[in-house]
């Protein structure tokens, strides 16, 4: 992948304007430096690719990609990423007041990720109240801090 990216970088650098109309020479052309970086990246990426193939041929793909990390279920990871993205891309700067978007996001995140534990202990309503309180406090504190202490015009 890096080899391909390095090649792409080199091609794009080669296609850049050489600025000869403004008296640029080869060593002052805008594409020279990124072109060099692209070539080095393609070379290192190629080396990495060859090494991975050789390692996989030696011990097999599965063993080469072995990872001992204890991962959480992929579904909860996807849900967290979705919540992060909804907040950053849809709730911030799209007309929803910042404090409201923040309160919704924080409350939803806390509720969703604690709901299983709360269900087991029979305290869903308490969990919802805790989540709403955390969301409201976070939204109020962050909005106050940035708007009235740091004088930032929030989105």
């Amino acid at each position: 992948m890096w080899a391909a990216f390095g090649c792409l970088m080199t091609v794009l650098s080669w296609q850049m304007d050489r600025m000869t109309s403004q008296g640029a020479t080869l060593h002052t052309a805008p594409g020279l430096w990124p072109g060099i970086i692209g070539v080095v990246l393609a070379t290192l990426g190629g080396m990495l690719m060859v090494r991975s193939w050789r390692r996989a041929a030696h011990i097999g793909w599965d063993a080469a990609q072995e990872d001992e990390t204890d991962y959480a279920p992929a579904r909860s990871f996807a849900l967290a990423v979705a919540l992060f993205m909804i907040y950053a891309l849809l709730l911030v700067g799209r007309g929803v007041p910042f404090w409201l978007g923040t309160a919704i996001f924080v409350s939803a995140f806390i509720f969703v990720f604690q709901v299983a534990g709360r269900k087991a202990s029979g305290g869903i309503a308490r969990g919802a109240i805790v989540a709403l309180a955390c969301g409201a406090v976070t939204a109020a504190a962050v909005t106050y801090l940035f708007e009235h202490v740091f004088y930032v015009r929030l989105p």
Binding site: Y87, V92, V106, F109, V142, P155
Partner: peptide
């Protein structure tokens, strides 16, 4: 689950600021 969304809010608003 309580700490992570608060830090993410700070990441977003901090980058924006």
């Amino acid at each position: 689950p309580i700490i992570l969304p608060i830090i993410f809010v700070l990441c977003v608003v901090g980058s924006y600021a």
